[in-house]
Amino acid sequence: MQAIDIVKQYASAFNAHNVPAVLELFGSTGTYTDPVAGNALHQADLGGYIHGLLGAFPDLQFELVRLAPAGDNLVVLEWIMHGTNTGPSPSGPASGRTLAMPGVDLITVDGDGIAHLVAYFDRMLYAEQMGLLPQEQAA
């Protein structure tokens, strides 16, 4: 199977909220990293991370903007994360606000699974959209 097909499976499983299918694509050695996750997450920790994200955004969907091979085993996935924060998150209680946050994943595939995924997104934009920043006072 080609790397781009594996990434399509990953995106489809994530959008279906099928956490076991996502984790299966990572296998026991694949890693996931993003600006919030901190250190690279392996399968067991990644499952908890995804469940937390889906708990905070039960309607979470990733709109696929662009999917492009960048070599034999590397795929670039550009996306926009959409969801409504109706559940608690590490940043606080549900805000009821909607999110439309762009980002990019660099996904390295090894065999029939994901060896490493690094996600990039703007944490400040997330904070702005979720109402986590202090409002400027009018003079």
Rank of each mutant, 00 (worst) to 15 (best):
V22D: 03
P69V: 11
G47I: 00
M101I: 08
D105N: 12
I107G: 04
T98Q: 13
N73Y: 10
V19M: 04
A11L: 07
N85E: 05
A119E: 08
H51S: 11
L41I: 02
A70G: 12
R97Q: 12
N15Q: 04
G30T: 05
T98Y: 02
G111S: 06
S28R: 09
S89Y: 04
Y49I: 02
E24G: 10
P35T: 01
N18V: 00
T29R: 12
L54I: 02
F14R: 12
V75I: 11
L54P: 10
G103K: 07
G30N: 08
T98C: 10
G111P: 07
T31P: 13
E63G: 12
G27E: 04
G111Y: 06
S89T: 10
G52H: 05
Q9D: 12
P90G: 12
H82L: 10
D122L: 08
G52R: 08
H17P: 00
P35Q: 02
G83S: 07
R97H: 08
V118K: 13
M81I: 01
L54C: 06
L60A: 15
Y120C: 11
A115I: 00
G96C: 05
N39Y: 06
F14H: 12
E24P: 00
M101E: 08
H82M: 03
D105Y: 03
G48F: 04
F57Q: 07
F121T: 11
H17V: 01
G87F: 01
P93W: 00
F62K: 09
H42K: 14
I50P: 11
A40F: 13
G55C: 04
D112S: 14
P69T: 14
G103Q: 05
A115R: 14
I107W: 02
A56D: 06
A40C: 09
S28T: 06
P20I: 09
L53K: 06
L64E: 15
Q9G: 05
V76L: 15
T31R: 13
Q43A: 10
V65S: 14
N15P: 01
N39W: 02
G103R: 05
G96K: 04
V109H: 07
I114W: 04
L67H: 13
A115P: 00
T84F: 03
F14W: 09
Q61A: 15
Q43R: 14
T29N: 13
F62N: 12
Y120P: 02
M81D: 09
F57P: 15
Q43M: 05
A40R: 11
L53N: 11
G113R: 15
N39T: 09
F121Y: 15
T29V: 01
E24I: 00
G83Y: 02
G111Q: 05
V19Q: 06
A70Q: 15
T86G: 09
E78Y: 07
V19I: 07
G30L: 05
A13R: 01
D45W: 00
H17A: 13
G30R: 08
W79A: 13
H17D: 01
